[in-house]
Design a protein around this nucleic acid. Sequence first.
DNA 1: CACGTCATGGAACGTCATTCCATACTTGCC
DNA 2: GGCAAGTATGGAATGACGTTCCATGACGTG
Lengths: 231, 231
Amino acid sequence: MTCQDEVMPPARNRGRLSRDVVVNAAVDLLDEHGSRGLTFKLLTERLQTGAGAVYWHVANKDELVTMATDQVIGTALERLSPEPGTSPEARIRALALSVYDTLDQHTWAAPHVVAVHTMPHTMRLLERIGGMIAETRLPVRRRFAVATAIFIYLTSVTAQDAGRAVAAGPDSTRDDMLRHEAQQWAALDPETFPFVTRIAEDLGHHDDRDQFLTGLDLILDGLRAQVGDLP
Amino acid sequence: MTCQDEVMPPARNRGRLSRDVVVNAAVDLLDEHGSRGLTFKLLTERLQTGAGAVYWHVANKDELVTMATDQVIGTALERLSPEPGTSPEARIRALALSVYDTLDQHTWAAPHVVAVHTMPHTMRLLERIGGMIAETRLPVRRRFAVATAIFIYLTSVTAQDAGRAVAAGPDSTRDDMLRHEAQQWAALDPETFPFVTRIAEDLGHHDDRDQFLTGLDLILDGLRAQVGDLP
DNA sequence: CACGTCATGGAACGTCATTCCATACTTGCC
DNA sequence: GGCAAGTATGGAATGACGTTCCATGACGTG
């Protein structure tokens, strides 16, 4: 009855871990503690396991971050309720806004969006955009250029805006950041920066999301001009 | 005459280091070894100094990378010869291409471009764009929106394209990467990815730089429409 | 020539990603 | 029903890295 098995590990929990469980835990940690918050120490503590177990399911940290980022793109697609009957244009707008707002909530993912081009959920995103484009009367040979233009605009501008929120720090809002940036602009030398100092004020009451939509509409205008009326 | 001063460091080299020297060395290391190539070990070896000396000039590694990225933006502005007489539109195009090609040569900088909005050279870039916009007949209150739209398009799309080149690895070209990506697209299930599989072929003979220019021209078209003729 | 400030070089520290291995559960085969 | 091969786990050990700390030296100022 002497307890000599202190050293012995407890019964192994087989099948408790999986790729998805690990990725979801990574997303949670990144959401909670920011881009620096994902460490294998925290990850193994939360999953109540060891590093080796995690490495059985993922190749390395880079891959884990990439999968976590793709997961975020996936949630942006999931939260979108299909609205049959509305125009392709309107649905592209809704899709774009969903991605924009989702990345805004997971700002750590922004810098990595460029690296997930070939990941499953991101491919679904491109497929969705392409499907909507295909519903228009746009000539087939133009579809590639237009769909990828929208895709690139969506992912890269969204990433840029979200990145600005990251620089602001976790507790400050995007508005705080803009005000701070506007102050820095206004403080520049008006001699060498005549333009920037003059428009610094505009930056104060400027809305990233509005501007994102404005740019998207510009592309959609171009699309409409090429298509004529939509079906 | 006994050599007891083995322990003594050699004569100090005062004033040999400076912020600029450190940043330039960082840029060189990043160019040579990629985004992982900047370590304080390599940096101090190359500069023949210790970590403390570097930390006297730089707050931490993040700041160093940010300054290195801004430095790259600076070289994009420097390599641009002023061409008086040409239209603002043509000069914006030339400026955009210079940034695009420079970031293509320093692909490690791409993910950090979003973080340098308030850095000196990046401010110069926005100032240059704004100055050209101001030369047009665009109403003053529209200048902010258009200038920042061009700036955001330029920096974020360029960063995205350069990021794709990073994923390709140091020894493969951007074309290799595109071909590889096209193969992955083509290998997807045609049932769930009807659009992507169909346009996979187009991706093979697609030119990022061309598409970048196409998108920029779209914005410039919008600008011209709002301005009427340029002065 | 003394004294405070600026600057340097490198040792030491703590954190982190990653590797390695001993263990145990599961499946398939005889 | 047992034995081997593959699958999965937990944690100790390793090495690389960013950062801090401190002893040392050079310069400017009185």
